[in-house]
């Protein structure tokens, strides 16, 4: 099962080309899209959305978790 899905997904990747998830989505439904640009992050890993908001919200969830505990 794992091999079947891997082969299928590689085929789909080759057909659709190398693009980000948002661009892939827009192309799939026929919406105009722009290539995603931005920093290359760390080893290609990048953060979506506003970075400061991300840190603040994650910190708030972690504080809430600690308080509940």
């Amino acid at each position: 099962m794992v091999l079947i899905f891997l082969v299928l997904s590689l085929f789909a990747y080759i057909i659709t080309g190398d693009k980000g998830i948002e661009e892939r989505f827009s192309n799939a439904v026929g919406l105009p899209s722009e290539p995603e640009s931005g920093d290359n992050g760390i080893f290609g890993f990048t953060l979506e959305g506003n970075h400061l908001s991300y840190v603040i919200i994650l910190a708030l969830i972690l504080v809430a978790t600690a308080l509940i505990r």
Partner: peptide
């Protein structure tokens, strides 16, 4: 649209593994 979304879902399934 179904064809495009099926390809997208197929890529997603690679990540699902």
């Amino acid at each position: 649209t179904l064809y495009g979304l099926s390809l997208l879902a197929a890529v997603n399934m690679g990540v699902a593994i």
